[in-house]
């Protein structure tokens, strides 16, 4: 990853309380660029317009739940790492969804800031790696396929 490059994070949560807080946390950290919205539809708009490295979404939202939103996000930007941020106590179904829709991570509210930041940075790194591979940076085609499989 280019040292000057600030990975782009899209945050979607229907609670302004949460989006504003996450904006604050990411601003404090300073290594990530944050776009935060309160409606999933807005999030999809952003995804249609510009490239993001990480998509962080709330689970339970009125218009579109987090899993549906992230599925749609996957169609728009398959390389972006998807993270679910949830206050929902049902861990099992959340973990199942990680496998079903290919989540990068699942974070429970209340989250730990430093942990969250680390996950976001790792997720961004993974996305960059994927993009580089897809851009043909890997010399051996078969190896590329294997790494691709491993990462997905």
């Amino acid at each position: 990853m280019n040292d000057d490059y600030k990975p782009k994070i899209l945050v979607v949560d229907d609670e302004p309380m949460v989006t504003r807080t996450l904006e604050g946390v990411l601003r404090m950290d300073g290594t990530l660029e944050c776009t935060a919205v309160n409606r999933p539809a807005e999030g999809l708009d952003h995804l249609g317009k510009s490239q993001f490295d990480v998509i962080l979404s709330d689970f339970i939202m009125p218009e579109l739940d987090g899993l549906e939103f992230l599925s749609k996000a996957r169609e728009l930007q398959p390389e972006a790492s998807r993270i679910l941020l949830t206050g929902y106590a049902d861990k099992e179904s959340a973990i199942r969804s990680i496998n079903e829709i290919g989540l990068y991570q699942y974070i429970e509210k209340p989250w730990h800031n430093q942990q969250l930041l680390m996950i976001l940075r790792n997720a961004a790194e993974r996305t960059c790696l994927l993009r580089r591979l897809n851009n043909g940076e890997g010399s051996d085609g078969e190896l590329r396929q294997q790494i691709w499989k491993m990462l997905i």
Binding site: E15, M17, V18, T21, L22, G24, V25, R27, M28, I60, G87, Y88, A89, D90, E108, K109, P110, W111, H112, N113, L116
Partner: peptide, 25 residues
């Protein structure tokens, strides 16, 4: 408990996260 947990986690997450930011500021 399940409902309460979910409802409380959002404001609680906000509180916990903002304390860090406040300290930083």
């Amino acid at each position: 408990a399940a409902g309460l947990t979910h409802e409380i986690h959002t404001p609680l997450g906000t509180l916990v996260a903002n304390l860090d930011v406040l300290r930083y500021e």
